[in-house]
Design a protein around this nucleic acid. Sequence first.
DNA 1: TTGTATGCGTTATCAC
DNA 2: GTGATAACGCATACAA
Lengths: 332, 332
Amino acid sequence: MATIADVARAAGVSPMTVSNVINGHPHVRESTRVKVLSAMTALDYRVNVAARNLRRGRTGVIGLAVPEIHRPYYGQFAAAIIAAAQRRDLRVSIEQTGASRENELAVLAVSRNRLYDGLILSTVGMGAADVEHLRVPYPVVILGERIFQAPVDHVAMPNVDGARAAVRHLVDRGCRRIAMLTGAETRDVNVSRLRLTGYRLALESAGLAYDPALVQRMDAMSMAAAAERVHTMVAAGLDFDGLFCLTDTAAIGALRAFADLGVRVPAQVKVIGFDSIEEGRFTVPSLSTIDPDHTAMADRAVDLLVRRIEGDRGHEEFVSGFSLVARESTGD
Amino acid sequence: MATIADVARAAGVSPMTVSNVINGHPHVRESTRVKVLSAMTALDYRVNVAARNLRRGRTGVIGLAVPEIHRPYYGQFAAAIIAAAQRRDLRVSIEQTGASRENELAVLAVSRNRLYDGLILSTVGMGAADVEHLRVPYPVVILGERIFQAPVDHVAMPNVDGARAAVRHLVDRGCRRIAMLTGAETRDVNVSRLRLTGYRLALESAGLAYDPALVQRMDAMSMAAAAERVHTMVAAGLDFDGLFCLTDTAAIGALRAFADLGVRVPAQVKVIGFDSIEEGRFTVPSLSTIDPDHTAMADRAVDLLVRRIEGDRGHEEFVSGFSLVARESTGD
DNA sequence: TTGTATGCGTTATCAC
DNA sequence: GTGATAACGCATACAA
């Protein structure tokens, strides 16, 4: 493989001049530029990225750590991140943490090896007790709640307000016994807890009593687990006319369970999710949801990371807006 | 940031000994090993991956280029690839090609810069005419048909046989006018063409006539496009009692359209897809499909790539097996 | 078992 | 406008 030195020899110039041509430096005479370029073509020269990285101290790659890339929400989010990074000439390497604290910490540790210029980390397993692990000597953007005092940027969803709007929508549609399908509250502040707060606030505003029996906690937020839980709820004779699901993924599982059980949605039970994944447009019935504007979140996450890579101090929190998407599952 | 030299100084040994400890070389006295390790801890030493890459000529990263990571099929496939790579201590960097020939060629070009140790490339836009572009000086595994004579490995799906089994299943369930929702045949050999072949073979075996009007070609294989096309087909009064969709994604869009139109599935039309994405278990009705065993494909793709990275010559083609998954959409 | 010397390919600095 | 020099941090080959 040809190196800069080979090209320099062929073009009759110094390696430095070749480098200047490659990197588009301004002060290169046009005639030498042409000479160098044609030598590069002749030798089929390619930059050695490893050498450049070593010299520059940058890799041009950012890490993106998500629980599981095959879950629709994270897949759609990753696509947006990759697109945003591409616009800034960055590549994205994806790590799967399986939502476990250990793997999240492992990603933070590995990234210290200057493997990535920065890291976008979706924290699901980590808690406030792990704050020290976030004091790393490279840029990090946390995707999730601002539960840490560590010097990192945050991109968060409007969890409380979004959940509140979702439940309020169910109330507006006439629901009076509203159940919630949520996750385990593994730590002080997490998505489940925040959306539950929104749920309670909405009930309160509507003058509806909070009934703990209506809050159903699941370990895994999968379609299968949600379907199973709805079966259990109905079999147990739980009385509810509305269901707020922590995520659209769970809601799709729930819709399927209602179909199995012959419970008509929205006639007997109205269902709403959260996330606005694409699949929700095509379920039967189509799924009402809260859209937290993934694109804005992804853009902002990459933006914050790039700013920190470029040396900006100061840390920010960005909370995206949201909109209510009313579809058939909360219709008449 | 501490380097090997710093650690060596602190431990009172040579840099080389530190390197030996880091890389687990056998001939290091236990006492020096301990000394070095504690010096590493004290200085919070981290290997500089860029320097190691330059020296070793490897990056420990493989590229995975797919059309769009947020499509369920590619998301689930990527998850399997990442898991398989992790088992071999490799990281995965994901590129999105948008299924365009230009972007696929661009990924091949960029990877030449020793950015990745190898590349797994899903070819959708490229054709046999691009064969020269595949003669690259690094390992490549093509995900798709073996349409190239280039020295690359292939991992392919059982497209013809799988499609044949899908259509035969519709025939077995009593369908006589079977439509197909497929993609554009942009080149000599592609997925659409192969699955269409399977479709025709199945019709032939069953003694059913081939009617070109029943073959509906779409530009994009999205849920939205499929839904729209089914609306058109029904509005045009096209007569069919079975529908074979090129992918599950298209099938989900089709199911949604039938629901809109009041066409009962499977009573009036039976529907089957291809890919076995997880979502198909939870649609209403649940979706029959062909399962090409993604896990085996992903494992094999990484396996072939690793073998080539390690210098194995000789090229292979792997065609996965498949199984028919019969669910409600082809029930009674 | 440990150390010395050297080079991987690139680019920043500074001199010309 | 161009080039000589050095250094990024690590690991291979070989010597001790």
